[in-house]
Amino acid sequence: MPDAVISASNLCVDVQTKKILKNVSFNANRGEVLALLGGNGAGKSTTIKTFLGLMKPTSGSVWLDGVDVQKAPDIVRQKVAYLPESVMLYGHLTAIENIQYFLSLSGKDKSETEIVAALQRVALQESAWRAALSGYSKGMRQKTAIALALLREAPILFLDEPTSGLDPVAIDEFNRLVSQLAAQGATILMVTHDVYGACHVANRIGLLRDGEIVGMFDAPEQGNIDSEAVHKAFTQGVVA
């Protein structure tokens, strides 16, 4: 049983005959932000879905806080907040109703005041709070989902392309939130193809290509990961 909060060990995932993930192994400790960087079809979302128990490993295993996800998916899901790439919230509900509904399903009841505070924190304009999500832009939906993830107060966060659809101001705010949560002890696995965003918030970056980790970059004690080196590795396949 690994000590790390998020751990993948020799993870292989096949979909039909196609090998999506090939012997992927990594760890993320408490309070750490691990970013998996990769292009389209690299296996980023599959990695997250395997941790969430939505896909089964062909071999290898994934662990969350010392619990094998395949053996106890319901237990690990109580500790997890998930921000999907395309936000899966209900169009017929308002932002507040969506958050109330999903929180009540996960057994966390929050007052409307707390929900409003979270929506303010993600900078969703007040006029949208009580409007049906069907009229929201992608960015507004993303902010609602981020507010939900914050309110779940989960110790582990999975973020799938979290800044996709956000405006630059909202991206900055989001990055600040991620750093804050990590500082408070949350362990975060983020998958993205945004090199500079990842370098800005992550403690470590794994480079995923064709289902394999081809490089790992650690942040120095002070400052961020060298985005130029990561960019070069990402675009030219050169790993230092």
């Binding site: 128990g53 939505l54 319901d74 899901r77 997890v80 919230l89 999903f102 399903l105």
Partner: peptide, 14 residues
């Protein structure tokens, strides 16, 4: 179709 099924599962709803 909306993808909320997976999201509900992640919320711990079997």
């Amino acid at each position: 179709e909306a993808g909320t099924l997976d999201f509900l599962k992640v919320q711990g709803v079997s």
